[in-house]
Computed example of a mutant assay.
Amino acid sequence: MTDLKPWYLSKTIWASLCTVVLAAASFAGVPTGGLEGGAVADGILQILTATTGLVALWGRVTARRAIA
């Protein structure tokens, strides 16, 4: 990995930021609009958090350039 790319082009950075935002939203109890039942909303946030965490791992494994 000798080529460099800006941080904002990194799949790993974006997926990690999304994971942090979703986890913080879940922790803070952000209202989820029209969803009925807290359990459904919590489940959706947990699924999205896990998915973005997996995307971050995938981004790191498939990276071809270092972040500048």
Rank of each mutant, 00 (worst) to 15 (best):
Ala24Ile: 14
Ala24Asn: 08
Ala24Gly: 10
Ala25Arg: 03
Ala25Trp: 06
Phe27Tyr: 13
Phe27Gly: 04
Ala28Asp: 01
Ala28Gln: 03
Ala28Cys: 07
Ala28Trp: 03
Ala28Asn: 01
Gly29Leu: 01
Val30Phe: 09
Val30Glu: 00
Pro31Thr: 06
Pro31Cys: 10
Thr32Pro: 00
Gly33Met: 03
Gly33His: 04
Gly34Phe: 07
Gly34Tyr: 04
Gly34Asp: 05
Leu35Asn: 06
Gly37Gln: 04
Gly37Leu: 04
Gly37His: 04
Gly38Cys: 00
Ala39Trp: 10
Ala39Gln: 13
Ala39Phe: 10
Val40Leu: 11
Val40Asn: 01
Val40Ser: 02
Val40Lys: 07
Ala41Gln: 02
Asp42His: 07
Asp42Leu: 08
Gly43Met: 00
Gly43Leu: 02
Ile44Phe: 02
Ile44Glu: 00
Ile44Lys: 01
Ile44Gln: 00
Leu45Thr: 03
Leu45Phe: 08
Gln46Lys: 13
Leu48Glu: 07
Leu48Thr: 04
Leu48Arg: 05
Thr49Ser: 12
Thr49Leu: 13
Ala50Asp: 11
Thr51Cys: 11
Thr51His: 10
Thr51Ser: 14
Thr52Ile: 03
Thr52Met: 09
Gly53Phe: 08
Leu54Gly: 10
Leu54Asp: 05
Val55Tyr: 09
Val55Asp: 04
Val55Cys: 11
Val55Glu: 05
Val55Asn: 06
Val55Trp: 03
Ala56His: 06
Ala56Pro: 07
Ala56Asn: 07
Leu57Phe: 15
Leu57Glu: 09
Trp58Ala: 09
Gly59Trp: 03
Gly59Lys: 06
Gly59Cys: 10
Gly59Asp: 04
Gly59Ala: 10
Gly59Met: 07
Arg60Asn: 13
Arg60Gly: 08
Arg60Trp: 15
Arg60His: 15
Arg60Pro: 01
Arg60Ile: 13
Arg60Val: 12
Val61Pro: 04
Val61Leu: 15
Val61Ser: 07
Arg64Met: 04
Arg65Pro: 00
Arg65His: 12
Arg65Tyr: 06
Arg65Ser: 09
Arg65Thr: 06
Ala66His: 14
Ala66Gln: 15
Ala66Ile: 13
Ala66Met: 15
